[in-house]
Simulated scan of single mutants.
Amino acid sequence: MAFDWDDMRVFLAVARAESLSKAGKALKLDPATVGRRIARLEDRLGAALFAKSVQGYVLNSEGERLLAHATRAETALAQGAEELHGQAGQLSGVVRIGAPDGSANYLLPQVCAAICDENPGLEVQIVALPRVFNLSKREADMAITLSRPTAGRLMAQKITDYKLHLAATQGYQDSHPPIRRLKDLKGHRIIGYIPDMIFDKEVDYLAETGVDHVTLASNSVAVQVNWVRQGAGLAIVHDFCMPTLPDIRRVLPDKVSLTRTFYLVRHLDDKRVERLNRFAESFIAGVRREVARLEELANHAT
């Protein structure tokens, strides 16, 4: 049975967006046209591909099976196009990266800008969200994670380890009771994650300090850092954030010192896509250098 690749493109867009309107926006088609194309594809296949409701379009088991094949075909076409255009020189096209907002705010802007400086035809999109990205639905081409994935058709490369410490501004410390032991933290305002929105066990930092209550909470690292910047309390802060906080000082560094790891995760079907391989190589090297540079600055400042 022959298929129109345009129908596959529509199928992939709806599978990833789970919405006719969102898929239509991505494809520059009106939702009614998208719906007709999906209906035509299902009619040709003799099988429904989606569970349809007022909430949207969600792949059923038949749709999941087709998605795996359609994704591989999409990857093969992209690889063929790259080879025909001889992309042995500069990188081009769009690369979308999903990342927790700590790295997205304090590391990736300068790293990605440097890669784009060397590759003027390249466009980089950073999706900064504190959650796990679904690479099978192509929410991103690659994602930074804090844990190595254990399921799915994914491949992971270790980027680098990084350090975190308990910290507060000098102004906060000067105006509050001294902190000499961990138990002294109970008399202080603690900043951290909203407990039921912790998206990865690796960000459950305060569990390692014995603190059981957070007064100021956010699912965003940027919000937490800005509270620290304003002298609102103490928080576990990435060392690579500290150079942006002029008055920050580590607290109990000999007792509260954490190490975590960044991984770069990609879909296994992209393993042979040379453009993404080359970008990943430059990206990993850039993040490693930037973490080392910023942590060195933090060590000299505190």
Rank of each mutant, 00 (worst) to 15 (best):
R229I: 02
L294W: 04
D174K: 09
E82G: 12
H188C: 08
S21K: 12
L234H: 01
L264Y: 12
Y193A: 06
L264C: 10
P177Y: 04
F50Y: 09
D101V: 03
I115G: 02
D4T: 08
R250P: 13
I248D: 12
E82D: 06
D196H: 04
L245Y: 02
N134M: 05
F11D: 00
C112I: 12
K158M: 14
L146Y: 05
I126Y: 08
R260N: 10
A232I: 15
V10F: 09
L12I: 00
L12A: 03
A128V: 02
V124D: 06
F240Y: 15
I179M: 12
Q230W: 05
A88D: 10
D6W: 10
D30H: 12
C241I: 11
L66P: 08
R96G: 01
S220D: 03
F279I: 01
A47M: 02
A78G: 11
D161K: 15
A32C: 03
A292N: 05
V256S: 11
N299D: 11
R249K: 14
N226I: 10
R275E: 07
V225L: 09
R266M: 06
G35N: 04
I126R: 08
F240I: 01
R37F: 01
A99I: 09
L27Q: 09
E74P: 00
A151F: 02
E290P: 04
V211E: 03
A235M: 09
R288M: 03
A76Y: 14
A32F: 12
G286C: 13
A232W: 09
Y205E: 07
L164P: 10
D204Q: 13
A78D: 05
S92E: 08
A99E: 13
N219D: 09
G24D: 00
K137I: 14
V111W: 03
V214G: 07
A15Q: 01
H238Q: 13
W5Q: 07
A114C: 02
A235S: 07
H213P: 01
H165D: 14
N219R: 07
F133L: 05
P243Q: 11
N219H: 01
V237F: 04
L12S: 01
T215P: 09
E281A: 14
V291W: 06
D43H: 04
G171P: 11
V10A: 11
Q55C: 04
P253A: 06
G210F: 03
A217T: 03
L20D: 04
K137R: 11
D184T: 04
L12N: 03
R260V: 12
Q125T: 10
K255A: 13
T215A: 14
V111I: 15
L84C: 14
P243H: 08
A222M: 12
Y263E: 07
